[in-house]
């Protein structure tokens, strides 16, 4: 579906623990173009507030949730100039939205367990994937491996419980789940599945070191894995060429915005 650009209204700005917040937006393109309501897990939107000339470019956010009526939400954390301003947004403030953009995660396949691996602010596309699977009645095929710095860094866990998605948690300080990185229990799970001949695949989104570990695990055990990447991008629709991703193949780079943000572990060319 072709992306469009339109003005949306903030309907809610909900604070979660760990500095995260969920921005709910409502709006539809007026030119009859594609709506964000059609977005799939892994796809993203570019958002820009009324920032004048100081902050030039929109920021990319993975879609957390869509409603058929055109409401959608993103989850983020204030860490830079744009996201800090977004944290202060209130209902009725407006944002310019471009989307839906990018290619989504694959849907669940019969007979294959989908293991969702989330780290920190990488939760939204996997949360969306689980919600979608629940709506399709296949959520029991999914498992969540979710890591963060501490207990407060792990959010929206009740949703996964409500969808009957089993979850394994890990925190760096041990305040929830196992102590350390989530890729440690994940490694056990993958090795065990391979030993038993269980069909699994990995869907991951989170900090680059976590994604690198997931990729390594997938390649070592010959398990299919999809990584949802994040790169600096100015436009989000294939023009600025800022969000190049190094890949194996006929060309050295592909683009996070139009070819991704979801890439297979095999194609990504990382050290």
């Amino acid at each position: 579906m072709a992306p469009t650009q339109f003005i949306a209204r903030v309907t809610a700005n909900r604070r979660l623990t760990g500095g995260y917040f969920i921005l709910e937006l409502s709006g539809q393109p007026t030119d009859g173009g594609g709506s964000v309501a059609a977005a799939e897990p892994g796809q993203f939107v570019m958002l820009r507030g009324e920032w004048g000339r100081e902050l030039l470019n929109p920021r990319a956010f993975s879609v957390l949730h869509v409603d058929p009526d055109g409401c959608f939400s993103v989850m983020l954390k204030a860490y830079g100039r744009g996201t800090t301003r977004m944290k202060a947004l209130r209902p009725d403030d407006s944002m310019t939205v471009t989307g839906p953009l990018g290619r989504p995660f694959p849907g669940p396949r019969p007979g294959v367990a989908q293991i969702l691996v989330a780290g920190g602010v990488g939760l939204p596309p996997l949360h969306f994937q689980a919600r979608r699977a629940h709506a399709l009645g296949v959520a029991t095929q999914l498992e969540l491996y979710y890591g963060g710095r501490d207990r407060d860094d792990l959010v929206l866990l009740d949703d996964f419980a409500g969808w009957d998605v089993r979850h394994v948690l890990a925190t760096e300080d041990g305040s929830a789940g196992t102590k350390g990185f989530v890729t440690v229990p994940l490694a056990g799970r993958v090795a065990d599945a391979r030993a038993r001949g269980e069909a699994i695949e990995l869907l991951a989104c989170g900090p680059t070191p976590m994604l690198a570990a997931v990729r390594k695990l997938a390649l070592e055990h010959d398990v299919d894995a999809w990584l949802c990447l994040e790169e600096q991008m100015a436009c989000g629709f294939g023009v600025c060429l800022g969000c190049a991703v190094p890949v194996h193949g006929p060309q050295p780079y592909r683009y996070c915005c139009t070819d991704g943000p979801v890439f297979t572990a095999k194609e990504v060319r990382w050290p």
Partner: peptide, 10 residues
């Protein structure tokens, strides 16, 4: 093919 990453920053 273009340059390595990162290529842009605001």
């Amino acid at each position: 093919p273009g340059n390595p990453l990162p290529r842009i920053c605001e």
